[in-house]
């Protein structure tokens, strides 16, 4: 088996996915099977010079800096599972807590 249950568990934490206890053995086996299968590209000599292929336009187009938000047929309050006084709500986080690969309050 190419991946251990421990490794899959770590990946599941990174992906914020709960997996039922009973599902672990089969999942670990399937993950191993898939990863072994796709690893066959490692056997091909990697041509270092080969640039990655990016489909689509060669250069990004630029938008003018005008305030022109796309309309919403439903407002956040109508979509959110928990909403109060204009805010989305989640269970309380400590300001010092990073739930996943968190960063405190601001983007990094």
């Amino acid at each position: 088996m190419s991946v251990s249950r421990d490794e899959v568990q770590k990946i599941a934490q990174l992906a914020e996915l709960h997996v039922d206890e009973a599902a672990w053995p089969a999942l670990t086996e399937q993950m191993s099977r898939i990863l072994d299968y796709v690893a066959q590209i490692a056997g091909v000599a990697a041509t270092e010079s080969e640039k990655p292929f990016i489909p689509g336009p060669a250069a990004v187009r630029f938008r003018a800096d005008t305030v022109d938000p796309a309309p919403l047929a439903l407002q956040p309050a109508q979509m959110a599972p928990a909403f109060r006084e204009g805010f989305f709500l989640v269970p309380r986080l400590d300001a010092f807590e990073a739930p996943g690969e968190g960063t405190g309050e601001d983007a990094e």
Binding site: E7, I11, V19, M31, L35, V38
Partner: peptide, 10 residues
């Protein structure tokens, strides 16, 4: 779930 895990792994 499988594909998310494979993708996260790679």
């Amino acid at each position: 779930r499988r594909r998310i895990l494979v993708g996260t792994y790679v």
